[in-house]
């Protein structure tokens, strides 16, 4: 992105394509990119990702900002642009502009226990924060960590190659759940909002960070609030259709907020004051 013109992307080359989901559809891949003009970003921010001649889509960063030599974006094949992205391979040229949006308030969360709950692809925009907090340079700024990762089936988890590493981190509890029972599955079954009462956490010290499909976020945040967690300590990152990323094109407008510049990260206290149009 040029400083003068936020619409102009710069070139990136695909270094590696990682097949994430193992279920029948195999519909999620992670693209590791080398940027011509690398930039710094904060966990929670996003980029506009283009394939020339096809179009542009919005993706949250999926890799830690502490990694400096590449950047990862995780893409579900679900529409015209993403189908075309999925056909790309190592060496392909793509286009990136960003970073856009606010970020998770990591300084404000210092001293908190953290409870991450994600559904499906919703893990991707949280991964920069997860890896940032686990980094030895920052880990002691945060308390205990709980992670509840949800997916439809065992084959639909993304970043499953990271799970063992995360589960073994000190002061960390790692849980997985799937929508309905599956052969050989010995972890949780059921939607995340039905499970949080089975995972004890300190109401006084915990900040919850959620990401997943909009219906899941709504059910889950309601469950946390009913459980007694104040909305000010529940954060999510919203998904909205976007074009510009800079608060002009009108698509991601909710009330007087624009998800692209006022978000995508909001606390439930902030969302509670906005029309429920997400």
């Amino acid at each position: 992105m040029s400083l003068q013109n936020p619409y102009l992307p710069s070139r990136a080359v695909i270094m590696e394509v990682i097949q994430e989901t193992k279920s029948e559809t195999q519909d999620v891949k992670t693209f590791r990119l080398k940027l011509d003009e690398p930039f710094d970003y904060r966990p929670g921010q996003f980029v506009e990702f283009s394939v020339a001649g096809i179009g542009e889509c919005t993706f949250g960063f999926a890799s830690s900002p502490l990694i400096k030599d590449h950047m990862e974006l995780t893409v579900k094949r679900t529409g015209y642009v993403t189908e075309n992205i999925h056909m790309l391979s190592e060496g392909s040229t793509v286009w990136i502009r960003g970073p856009f949006g606010n970020s998770f308030p990591l300084e404000k969360m210092e001293g908190s226990d953290l409870f991450y709950v994600t559904g499906g692809l919703g893990l991707a925009p949280l991964r920069p924060m997860i890896d940032y907090v686990f980094d030895p340079a920052y880990r002691d700024r945060y308390g205990k960590i709980k992670m509840l990762m949800a997916a439809r089936t065992p084959g639909d988890f993304i970043f499953s190659y990271d799970f063992e590493k995360w589960a073994q981190m000190p002061d960390t509890e790692f849980y997985q759940t799937i929508d309905s029972p599956a052969e050989g599955w010995n972890q949780f079954v059921g939607f995340p909002h039905t499970l949080i009462e089975k995972i004890p956490f300190d109401l006084e010290k915990t900040t919850a960070v959620l990401c997943g499909p909009p219906p899941m976020i709504k059910a889950l945040s309601n469950a946390f609030v009913q459980y007694g967690l104040p909305p000010e300590r529940i954060y999510t990152t919203l998904e909205m259709r976007m074009t510009c990323g800079v608060g002009k094109c009108g698509k991601c407008n909710i009330g007087h907020r624009y998800v692209c510049i006022d978000g995508p990260v909001f606390s439930m206290a902030e969302l509670g004051e906005m029309p429920s149009e997400y």
Partner: peptide, 12 residues
Amino acid sequence: KFTLHAGGHNPR
């Protein structure tokens, strides 16, 4: 379609 998500969800 203005607000239609690629995944099918539509807030409006």
